[in-house]
Amino acid sequence: MIIRITDQPIDVQELIAEVSNESNGGIVAFLGVVRRWNDSPNGSPREVYWLEYEAYREAAEEIMREIAQQIEEKWAITSIAIAHRIGHLEIGEAAVGIAVGAPHRVEAFDACEYAIDTLKATAPIWKKEAWERDHQTGQSWVENKAPL
């Protein structure tokens, strides 16, 4: 199992390798990537230049371990890898990577979705966004929306 907060780029191949074994017929990997456009608080999109991530490292890793534990209880899945990056990220870089392996794909998809939704809602991790809109620039802490 990989549970990691890191300032290094996320290696999705490493996460996939971690959850691969002879029992797992379905491997699902998710990457959360920094995108160029994000909604401003009033709903209209603004251009993003970079993000700066910060974490309460020990507590975030503890929450990530709890998520892995919940996945084991719900789906009997133990092949889990979760890595979250902190520090300065440019457009296109991965902020979070999750890989889940299970005998069948349905549980792997469900568990992976549960992992990213729960992480986004509960892990003590923050991002500051550097943005521009209508020739105005700024930097703001961006809060996750509730999943749809």
């Binding site: 974490a55 902020a95 979070v96 986004k120 892990a123 991790i125 923050w126 802490w141 809060e143 996750n144």
Partner: peptide, 10 residues
């Protein structure tokens, strides 16, 4: 004691 403003991970 840690203070946790609205989170933005992922």
């Amino acid at each position: 004691v840690a203070f946790i403003p609205p989170v933005g991970g992922g």
